[in-house]
Design a protein around this nucleic acid. Structure first.
Lengths: 338, 338
DNA sequence: CAAACAATAGTAAACGTTTTCTATTCATAG
DNA sequence: CTATGAATAGAAAACGTTTACTATTGTTTG
């Protein structure tokens, strides 16, 4: 099949050691010899076997990326930036989808380790494995960076988006526009939703708003979330509670709300203002363009890649937590209360 | 660092060969011995080194997936299905983004080969490498399946979506609804756009329509495509040509058209009907839901994975072309001409 | 009771590299 | 001339597995 270093050595009339040195450029090789070797490599179409190399070198120049799901609109941006940064630094990325399942997560990580990968980036990993210390133990064995919302609960290498900043900014923005009846839309159990709900409740209380309304739309894949939200919010609209603004926990829910309004002939932002969260691709694509909270996924992706490369190259496993503020991005889905 | 088979052997008081046999279950091992070995494995937290295994076995149970770009809405569905199928069969997936760049494509493939991966699935690879025979040569070295639009130009293992079927269906659908002034919206150079444009022209001619209008919106990432299309189509709307339907070459362009109409206070589907192509997530999410051509990306993804696994396991590199028909999915963006 | 065989387990080679150690050549200095 | 050292290149061990070959038991059979 493919030529090996032995074939190259034979053809060039030198030893395999010399071929190796010529390829890796880490020991002196006579120019003349080098030429013969390069010629042989060219003729044989030789490509070094990375598997054999990494067996000795104990490095594969590759990083495993864990995501809960591939179709989640949340991830393309961050994964793309991770990939770009890794590739630019001579690394390769293997993408693993865990379905948010803690067991799957462990299997996947076993696989990553047994393949001698150099590091792991886990995006929004399961609470279970965070809580039971699995990731903490793991971080002693292999460089790992975890990307998720900000909490003080865990130690280790985390890159976090602090949703608090952006969420408060969003609520204040709505307030400033004159909105006093703000609906909060969330999904099932998730740290991120709980955090935001607390902020919402506090906000209602501290501003002495008389109106508080929390709608939960369950969970599911992207489509399901949009549809369920639309359905539930349509019902809500029929209740005539006359809320004037909606704070949705992510862009998909915000879109669900927008679609419900369209069906009910309610105009956005004239009649109802809507704020989403995540600043996914979607928020720029739909009409009206969505005012949303930017998680800075691109920056975070780049940073995660840079940090993991740093840990790999320095062989130092430090514990570091880097927090990115989130920021409200104002587009066209909010307006002044009439 | 991690325990090796030698450590296990020592601890269990047997030879490494016996440990290997116990793990792989391919030779008889006494129950008693097996127990000792399993105990040692457990105690040491031993995980076999896949790198060492694959050096001998020449297989890594992994498949490299090539995509032009990660943020393309076209891919999540297909990649997810590929991944699911591979994982269910004990394989692992490495995702590589090539930016549609032929050189990058070659580099990536060198990397895949040098890592002893067992196969390749290339989604919409570059025309250059298809034309210059690179993929054909490659297919002699490693199992590879190429997913793209249907053309008779290439030989090898292809899984294709035949856009012709769905495109004609779409045009006929618009015709049946009474539309005679149909605008065709496309992007820059791509086989797929050319194919559709030809079909459109033929359709106009054979139905003796007096109206033919082709709009090209250039190229770019998802957002750029939506925005450019919106911009260009808004201008078109001002031209007062009074077209009543739009056939867009993909969902992003269709959304651009829809957004343009919304800005111009033109209602969909009452005033203008719009058809997209690809049946991406987006088409179900936007409002009104988009009537579009389904490329059956989920089926294709599954099939590609099944076929590559088959080739890998049978070690037979056959040449096979599987064509999937595309199909119009009718949702809410088209209506009868008033 | 010797011969044959099944069941089990050990030895060592192999996979394709990198790198330490060693050997050779050649130029320079004493 | 011999001694020294730099430049270059080869031999062989090592990485962690799998497996062909061999060795040891114990059991059956003629």
């Amino acid at each position: 099949m493919g030529a090996t270093i032995h074939d190259v050595a034979k053809r060039a009339g030198v030893s395999i050691a010399t071929v190796s040195r010529a390829i890796n450029n880490n020991y002196p090789v006579k120019a003349e010899t080098r030429e013969k070797i390069e010629k042989a490599i060219e003729e044989l179409g030789y490509v070094p076997n990375e598997i054999a190399r990494s067996l000795i070198l104990k490095t594969t120049s590759s990083v495993g990326i864990l995501v809960p799901g591939i179709t989640n609109l949340f991830f393309p941006t961050i994964v793309e930036e991770i990939n770009r940064t890794l590739v630019n630094n001579g690394f390769t990325m293997s993408l693993y989808s865990t379905d948010g399942n803690p067991i799957m997560e462990k299997n996947v990580i076993d696989n990553i380790i047994s393949r001698n990968m150099d590091g792991i980036i886990a995006i929004d990993p399961s609470m279970e494995n965070l809580d039971n210390g699995y990731f903490k133990d793991l971080s002693k064995k292999i460089p790992i960076i975890i990307i998720n919302g900000n909490t003080n609960k865990y130690k280790g290498n985390f890159i976090c988006y602090d949703e608090e900043v952006g969420s408060i900014e969003a609520l204040q923005y709505l307030f400033k526009l004159g909105h006093r009846k703000i609906v909060f839309v969330r999904g099932d159990r998730s740290l991120s939703y709980d955090l935001k709900e607390n902020l919402y409740r506090q906000f209602v209380k501290s501003n002495n708003l008389k109106y508080e309304k929390i709608i939960s739309v369950g969970m599911g894949n992207s489509l399901e979330v949009v549809e369920k939200t639309r359905e539930i919010f349509e019902k809500f609209l029929h209740s005539k509670e006359n809320a004037t603004a909606v704070f949705a926990c992510n862009d998909l829910m915000a879109v669900g709300v927008i679609n419900a309004c369209k069906n009910a002939q309610i105009q956005i932002p004239q009649d109802i203002s809507v704020i989403g969260c995540d600043n996914t691709l979607l928020s720029n694509i739909i009409h009206p363009k969505l005012t949303t909270i930017d998680l800075k996924m691109d920056e975070i992706g780049r940073k995660a890649a840079v940090e993991i490369i740093d840990m790999i190259e320095k062989k130092s496993i430090v514990n570091k937590k880097i927090v990115y503020d989130t920021k409200l991005v104002i587009r066209d889905s909010c307006g002044e209360k009439k």
